[in-house]
Write a protein that binds this DNA or RNA. Structure first.
Lengths: 137, 137
DNA sequence: TTTGTGATGTAAGAAAATATAACATATCAT
DNA sequence: ATGATATGTTATATTTTCTTACATCACAAA
């Protein structure tokens, strides 16, 4: 499903993610340092977080609040990765590699934009305004 | 509906919006200057755009490509505002004003976070990861 | 108790991203 | 030709984020 593209698209800067998660920059960077998340970077090396990244940070935060340490969280994530069949079969990943060998961030955004325009056109005439939201279903 | 909160939440910095819309910073600022959008600001005065803002910019871009000038676009938006009954009845706006008299950005983000946590909990155990996306339906 | 480790805070300095303002330019209708 | 509209460009200031280093605090192990 192409919603994965959307959910993994680098969109948010550090400041927003801090507010969204109520984590400190230090914490977020520390979690990255330990491989729990891998936000994208701008050309200028600023972190850009995706919806997935924010999701993950919220999970991390919850687990930490429940007393799990980073090592534990790492295991939990790893276990999930290996034991869960995953919505997106591995083949899909391969297929994507084949069909789109290394989408750049810019290409990704073009894709998103295209979908947005389309989604917007959808309920623009009949409703009052484009709804970027329905884009995430 | 509370999806309005989400759709109007200030999330994106200028750089991302430029890529998402393929508009120049100059253009985006110019459109704001002429009242076509009103992005929020950080404490430090940086613009923060919402999904709605991006939607609007994409609309503006399309209309401009179709030869409509800013004055025309302004009229179109104004007309939409007044003639369309709007999904969200006016009463709702009033109600929100009554129940939540002036939500700050921070409060808005707390709301979003809360919903995210909940949404995450939903398909976290049975699926592989939280799905911030389903949050936007 | 002392020591070590994990998780986070804080501060310094550099670099990137963005802000406003001013001036330039191209198109187009008058 | 003139003037307005829309956008590009440049300069300068400010904010935001980056990395690195050191401080701290809680807790487990020795």
């Amino acid at each position: 499903m192409s919603s994965n593209i959307r959910r993994s698209m680098p969109l948010f800067p550090m400041g927003i993610v801090m507010q969204l998660t109520e984590l400190s920059a230090r914490q977020i960077r520390y979690y990255e340092e330990h491989g729990l998340i891998s936000p994208a970077r701008t050309e200028g090396n600023r972190r850009l977080f995706s919806f997935n990244d924010v999701d993950r940070l919220l999970e991390i935060k919850e687990l930490i609040e429940q007393g799990v340490n980073l090592a534990g969280i790492k295991q939990i994530f790893a276990a999930r990765q290996s034991t869960m069949p995953s919505n997106e079969p591995v083949a899909e990943t391969v297929k994507e590699k084949v069909k789109k060998p290394d989408l750049t961030d810019e290409e990704l955004r073009k894709l998103l934009r295209a979908e947005l325009v389309e989604a917007g056109r959808f309920n623009r005439t009949s409703l009052r305004q484009g709804d970027m939201a329905r884009f995430f279903h």
